[in-house]
Amino acid sequence: MRSKLILSVLVLAVACSVYAASSPKKDKAGEAVVTTQDNSEDLRLEGEKRFRANCGRCHAAPHKFPPRMMATIVRHMRVRATITDEDMRLVLLYMTQ
């Protein structure tokens, strides 16, 4: 019973992840963001939007740290706030420009 419970929880999590990773809809959306918004201002605005949606739910925007520091902080927040890779890249772009 115990091992079944643990196994079920783990399988559920992994299944969600596999579904999301293999979802063509999501990949297309990711491509669309980068390929159609080649304007850096558009990307920055999208990054700000993602920042407000993900990071701004808990805290205000910090002042901008040097790029390599920001890359570490955003990776940390990616894990903590369970944000996607696409969100992480856009937030990083916003926070380093």
Partner: peptide
């Protein structure tokens, strides 16, 4: 399968390579 699937380089990871290298803080 999930972990190995994640190891396949994807479009998103190609974009990451352009990002600044993170530094310990």
């Amino acid at each position: 399968t999930a972990i190995l699937a994640g190891a396949v380089p994807k479009f998103a990871w190609a974009q990451l390579s352009a990002a600044p290298r993170p530094v310990p803080i």
